[in-house]
Design a protein around this nucleic acid. Structure first.
Lengths: 345, 345
DNA sequence: CTGGTCTGTGGGAGCGCTCCCAGTTGTGAT
DNA sequence: ATCACAACTGGGAGCGCTCCCACAGACCAG
């Protein structure tokens, strides 16, 4: 049977064909108008746009995707291990940034949590079957096979953060080193003489950077490096508590601590309270992340804020550009961090 | 030109047709196998499944959606005003529940933030153009037109929470009343004689329920209602602080407070500290939500926990059922809450 | 006036799948 | 052996769109 040319879709919604009929033009022309092709005269364009408005026409996503071989969707992939981070301004900010940037693009955001190897594999299939046009990766670990997989199948992707100093995968990160520097300079500027630090897990690049920033700030101020002032944690509250106790044992005279995460600052605060030290009287405290907890600590915690929403936006912009241009250039962005001063320092 | 019958798709991925050829059957049969139709002999099914495995065939989502007139996707709609809630276990839990339930269904999750009336309208179009099969609504306000719109266009949907006691829209809620009761009974059980409460904004049904639970628990214990023990807040920290001060003014002798949100408990805690009352020594404190802050307060806050993940799962299950059956029954689920005891009480 | 651009435009073909209608075969009753 | 009926199966038609080829006119140089 030959194309019937009937005027509207299965659910009663108007189709391209119907718009074309109403405007008195061909399907191709309507398609061109919708896709913003320049090869349409202004007169025709106006007519078609009127018809679209009259009919309340909305393009059918699946039909479009099938014909054009694109999905008009991108995926935000989150390893479940980090889903706890949801309870942080982190994801909130990223997601807001991403959705804001997507708001007038007609591109859908797919949320994908990966919690098992099986799901990871499933996502690989997804990606290979082109059900998305691009992928946003969040909190990627050093041994995650996903980036390589995506590169291999030529799927546009951008990750948040870096796995190392010479990350070749397209990424958007924040200036961890600069933020740590800011924090320590601030402490020094408040007249603190002995500034210690509690680091994150040093197999993570972000933690390395924060430590490097601490060292750099001290060096710039002409202080000597003192390894006794460096205690190691793993970003958890408990590790912050333990590290603080170790620090107090080694250097009872310290009067300031820069913690590489707010959670560790909470642990450190508890350790200080246990030995009767006041904050900021005896010891000034600065955290990192500016999480919701920071604002509600007693006293409220000075902390280094990452531009979450900005990162979300930047990642999305970079990804869309890569999708559009086939992007030969792999974006490497590092956004500035900012010190939020509260009364703990 | 007649169908070419060529064996693989544009990006080199195998198509249904290719699977059919390899299995030596027709397209229809492969389709039936994929969609789990019973009208296929076991022998044929096995052959086809082998071919699918051999070829690594993955159905093309858009083609399927176009042909079958469904989207294989549901939307999770979040009013931007509540995006701050992202920074709470709330969304984290809901999303985890939803994705967990979706994990082996091949249905995609679309995240939709609505921040402006324009975006709301845009989402209306989305919904009407059947680009999703169903909608999950989160934190719906009494005056939100979305539920009615969805009902009108016959789009399956489930909301989280209720707008009133006789909510007719399909919903999954948690037992706010029961949770409040639990909290107050717990306080009474610890020998507290004068239990006050700080309510949420009473135009919200959840806040009404929590107040009703407070009253019910007191009544059940044979206590007289005393309106001086009820102070009103709006779920924010500042309002909790103000309410606590008012309470102390009116009933200096109170020895316990049930706060309808953790944030208000934080404010209340601050007010207590300011007048030198200890927690839980002088005044026992219980919050609601079991947010991340609760655990990190000093002392850690006893709080009523909502089954976030459970609600996410329940909503999803209900929605999928509605999509599948055309669901004449509109689910009305209320999940139990739970008291998490910490040292503030 | 002719031949060559250069815009604009129409519409055939086809994307990969599902739906459904005809077969085709196998089975049991007559 | 014959017929009715069920259980399976093949493949045409079509979902609504984009791509692209062909072609109509407008315009200009020679």
């Amino acid at each position: 049977m030959v194309r019937t040319g009937r005027g509207s879709g299965r659910d009663g919604r108007p189709t391209l064909e119907q718009v074309a009929a109403r405007a008195g033009v061909g399907r191709g022309t309507v398609s061109r108008v919708i896709n913003g092709s320049p090869r349409v005269s202004d007169r025709t364009r106006a007519t078609v746009e009127q018809a679209i408005a009259d009919l309340g026409y909305v393009p059918h996503r699946a039909a479009r995707a099938l014909a054009a071989n694109r999905a008009d969707a991108i995926a935000l992939v989150i390893p479940e291990a980090e889903a706890r981070l949801f309870a942080e301004p982190y994801f909130s900010g990223i997601i807001r940034g991403v959705t804001a940037e997507l708001a007038d693009t007609d591109i859908q955001l797919l949320l994908t949590l990966i919690r098992t190897p099986k799901e990871r594999q499933r996502f690989g299939q997804y990606a290979s079957s082109r059900r998305v046009d691009g992928v946003l990766l969040v909190s990627v670990h050093g041994d995650d096979p996903l980036p390589d997989l995506l590169t291999e199948i030529g799927m546009p992707a951008v990750m948040n953060g870096r796995r190392s100093g010479q990350e070749s995968f397209p990424h958007v990160d924040c200036d961890n080193l600069g933020g740590a520097q800011l924090a320590v300079e601030h402490l020094l500027g408040r007249g603190r003489g002995t500034v210690a630090t509690i680091t994150g897990p040093l197999d993570m690049y972000a933690a390395q950077c924060r430590l490097a920033g601490y060292r750099e700030a001290l060096r710039a101020a002409g202080r000597e490096a003192d390894d006794d002032l460096v205690a190691h944690g793993d970003f958890t509250e408990e590790s912050g508590h333990a590290a603080m106790r170790a620090l107090l044992r080694r250097r009872p005279g310290l009067d300031a601590v820069f913690c590489a995460s707010d959670l560790m600052a909470i642990g450190a605060r508890r350790a200080l309270r246990e030995v009767g030290r006041t904050v900021p009287g005896d010891v000034a405290l600065v955290g990192f992340d500016d999480s919701s907890m920071a604002r509600h600590m007693d006293p409220p915690l000075t902390s280094v804020r990452q531009p979450m929403e900005g990162m979300g936006r930047a990642m999305t912009r970079a990804l869309l550009a890569e999708i559009a241009d086939g992007g030969p250039e792999r974006p490497h962005l590092v956004l500035p961090t900012e010190l939020v001063r509260r009364s703990s320092s």
